[in-house]
Amino acid sequence: MYGNPTVVAMRRIQGELRDWLKSAPEGCALESYDPLTNWVIIMQGPEGGMGMARLYEGEVFRLQIRFPDRYPLEAPEVVFLPESPIHPHIYTNGHICLDILYDGVNGGWSPALTVSKVCLSLRSMLASNTDKTRPPGDQAYCRRVGERSPKLTRWAFDDDSV
C-alpha cells in the first residue's frame, strides 16, 4: 500500500534523508523527494579501473524509489526510469532482478537496509558486469507485466555471479 505512510515510516524516511544529505553514496545524487515517499536518484555509471570493464562509464541513470506505508518492514519499490542500464538483471522497463529489493520467502530485504545501501548494491552490480545484454525474455516480460510493480513479479534469484 502506498500514499498513507505510518508515523514510524515517516520518521524513518526523514532519518534516511538526513543521513543522505549528510553523506550521499558515491556517484549518487538526489534529484527530487517530493512527496517524501517518492525519491528520484541520479546515478552515474561506475568508472572502470582495477581490472573492471568500463561498460557504463559516462552514462547517467535515474532511479525511482517508492516507499510503502509499512516501510521499512516492507521493501521499497525500486525501478530504473528510462533509459535503464543494459544489464543481464535489468529489464527494459526498469525492473531489477536483485533479491534485496523484495520481501517474501526468497527475497532478501531487511529493515536494516537503507536506500543508501541499496544504491551501493546497484552500483556494484553495474560495476561488476562484463556482459552488456538484456536478460533473456526481456521483451516478453515487459509486455506481460505492463505497468505493474516489480514487487508483484515472482522472482527467482539464482545467479549471484553478476
Partner: peptide, 27 residues
Amino acid sequence: NSCWQQYFDVQISDGNSRRLRCMAFRC
C-alpha cells in the same frame, strides 16, 4: 523493541511464523 514488535506483526500476518527470521540483513 518497538521495531521488533512491528516486524513480528507483519511477518506473522504474512504467514511466516515458522520461519521468523532476524531483521538484520542476510542474517
